[in-house]
Amino acid sequence: MKEKFLGVDVSNYTYDQLKKNIMTDINEHRKSFIVAINPEKILQAQKDADLLHLLNTATYQIPDGVGILIASRMTGGTIRERVTGIDMLLALCEQASLHGKSVFLYGAKPGVAEKASHRLKEMYPDLKIAGIIDGYEKDQDHIKDTINQAKPDIVFVALGSPRQEYWIVDHMEEMDAKVFQGVGGSFDVLSGRVKRAPAVFQKVGLEWLYRLIKEPWRIKRQIKLPTFLLKVLKTKK
C-alpha cells in the first residue's frame, strides 16, 4: 500500500484506514512510526542518504502535501486524500478517546504542549493525556523515563523535522509506547500560538497558499513544488 517518489515511500491509506490500522497496531502490541511526507522533504532526502533511509524506515509515510497528490496522479498512482500531520494527530486523539488509549505530548517551547493538551481535552473530554514534556528538556534519560513511567499508547513528538523523526528512530525501541508520530508545529497550532489556515483553504489543499500570503518569505520553500514535479516527471519517462 505504498507508492515511491524519487526513492521515498508514501503510504496510500486514507484516514479511516490509518485509524483502523494504528488501533490494531496498539492492540496487537506492534510499534509503529508515522512520518509526514511533502515535496520539500523528498527533495531534501535526495541530498541526504541518512534522511532518505530514515523516511523509508517509517511504518506509515502520510501524504502531507498537495504536491504528493499531484505526483501520484501524474504517475498513475492512487493517492487521492491528503493526510496532514495535525489532522492525523487529531484523528488519533479521537480514536484514543473512543478506545481508552492514552497519549503523551513531547516537544515545543515551554508551556505550549500544556496549552495544546487543554485544547485536546476540550475537543475530546474522554482523552487520557498521560504526560507532557517540553522540547527544551535536555536530559534524554529523564525524557525516556518519564514517558515509560506514564505508559502512553501514543507519543506525539514536536521537535521539528527531521530532528523529531531521528529522535523517534533512536529511542522508540527503548520505550513502552506503541505509536510514535512526528507532529512538527502542531502543538503551536493547538495552543493558539500559531493560526491555522481557514477551513476553506484546508478543504481544497491550499493551506500552503494561505501561509504564503501571511508569510511571503515562504516563497523560497514553495517554489520547490514545481522542481519536485519536474523530477517526478523525468523518472516516469
Rank of each mutant, 00 (worst) to 15 (best):
Q46H: 00
E94L: 07
N21E: 15
L209A: 04
A150W: 11
V183N: 03
A49N: 13
D25I: 08
Y106S: 04
L55E: 03
M74I: 14
Y106E: 00
V179D: 02
I68P: 01
T84D: 01
A158F: 05
I79K: 06
D9C: 04
G192D: 00
L229I: 08
A199F: 11
D139C: 09
Q44I: 05
F187T: 06
L233S: 12
P39G: 03
Q95I: 06
P226T: 05
K234I: 06
R82V: 07
D126Y: 07
K224Y: 05
V103N: 06
S191H: 09
M123D: 01
Q222D: 14
M175P: 00
G135C: 10
I22Y: 12
N21K: 15
Q202C: 10
Y136V: 09
G67W: 10
K121F: 00
T75D: 06
K31R: 12
D170E: 07
L52G: 00
P125C: 12
G77P: 02
E173H: 15
D87Q: 14
K224F: 05
A130E: 10
Q17T: 08
V194N: 09
L190H: 06
K178E: 13
Y13S: 07
F180R: 02
I22D: 04
T24E: 05
R196H: 13
Q222E: 15
R80V: 07
F33I: 11
W217D: 13
E173A: 13
G160Y: 03
L54H: 02
A45N: 08
A116F: 07
W208R: 00
N38D: 01
M88F: 12
H99M: 06
V35H: 05
K19I: 11
E207M: 11
R218D: 00
Q140C: 07
S32V: 10
L69F: 07
D134G: 03
V155T: 09
K195I: 11
C93S: 13
I68R: 09
L69C: 08
L159R: 01
T57G: 03
F5H: 09
L90R: 11
D48P: 09
R82N: 12
P125E: 11
P39E: 02
F228K: 08
Q140Y: 09
Q181M: 15
E94Y: 02
N12K: 14
A108P: 04
R119M: 09
I168L: 09
I34F: 08
D139Y: 01
Y15V: 10
T84F: 05
L92W: 02
P216N: 04
R221P: 00
G77L: 10
G184E: 00
D134M: 05
E3M: 11
L190R: 12
H29C: 08
K178Q: 15
Y124T: 07
N56Q: 04
I62W: 01
Q61N: 06
Q181K: 10
Q181E: 15
A91L: 14
T235I: 04
R211P: 08
I26V: 15
I34R: 10
Q164D: 03
N56M: 05
G185Q: 00
G160T: 06
D9I: 06
